[in-house]
Every structure is written in structure tokens, then in C-alpha cells.
Amino acid sequence: MKDIVLSGICKAFDGRQVLKDVSLRFPAGSATCILGPSGCGKTTLLRIIAGLESPDTGSMEGVPDQISFVFQEDRLCEAFTAVSNVRLVSGKELSRETVIDHLSEIGLGEDLDKPVRDFSGGMKRRVAIVRAVCHPAGLLLLDEPFKGLDEKLHGEVIEYIREHSRERTVICVTHEPEDAEKLGGRIIELEKIGG
């Protein structure tokens, strides 16, 4: 696993500059939280790292082939169970029993047979997180992953991510500096261009 290095990343949408000359290093196997006001380009930066957006200029190195992403939206297969949603991306190495253990660990053990469309917002969020954690990827990207979780669950989910992501690089976009502290990572603050 290599450090992820961004050099001189710029990105504009419809003439509006969102990222300007962003150069960052994310050490391999470490956690980093990105903070900043709305519209400062945090999500865009994650999407560029994931390869979902192309930067206008700049380069990236060290991004692994396999990436996990907790999007701002849950993006789950609503008609399927939580186990099916996770197994869709978890690969053959992870058994059904292990997936059930993961779901049970963050309080979803009672609802394994229900389609996720019957889940509450918080439950769906946790399924999306388990899906990302169970995907065998060297890089875990989290875009406001704790949105919609109450305080108790928030703590449990951070602990769950920490526990299962020790060997991978984690980049988390959040509004809460405490999240960075709990995830045990460093903090990077982005500023809004012209803000």
C-alpha cells in the first residue's frame, strides 16, 4: 500500500472554481478527516480521488484499484436485504456468516431478512457503512457518513470503522472536528475559494 499524493488539483464546474491547486498527501494506512464549510469542494475532492470526477489539472499517485465509498446518499439496492447489499460488493472471501457478524456488530442483527426499503434512515446509513467496510479495498472514502445517526450510534459506528479499517487508508469528510479525534486521524481544513 502506498501513500496517496495529490499534486496541484484544480476543478471548476460551469466556470466556478471549486478546488484550486490542492496538493495533499494521505499516508498509507492512516485516517484523515477533511473539514470545511459547505461548498468548499470536500465531496468533489473525494470524488476525484475515487475516479468519479476528473480534475481539470493536477495529478494523483498511489490510489489503489479497489476503493470503498460511503456516499452522502445511501445508494442501496432497496429491494434486497442488508446481507445481500453487503455481499454484492464484499467478494467471495467474506462468508455470509461474517457479513451477518458485521451487521450485528452495529445493531442490525435483528433485521437481516427485511428488504432495506423497510429500514429507517439510520439503519440504511449503517448498511451503507458496513458495505463499504466489507469491500476488500485499500482505501475507504467516507462522505459525511454519520449523517442521520443519533449520538449513541454515531459513537458505535466510529468505533466499528476504526476497528475494521486499521490496515487501510481512510479519508472522511465531516463537519465535526470530534469525528477526526474519535477516528484517530489528522485533520485537513479546506477553505472556500473566495469565501
Partner: peptide, 10 residues
Amino acid sequence: QMLEMARLYK
């Protein structure tokens, strides 16, 4: 968004 998720997770 679902298609993008599918692409990301291969």
C-alpha cells in the same frame, strides 16, 4: 447514482 455505485464497486 446507483450506476455510479455499481461502477465504483465494480
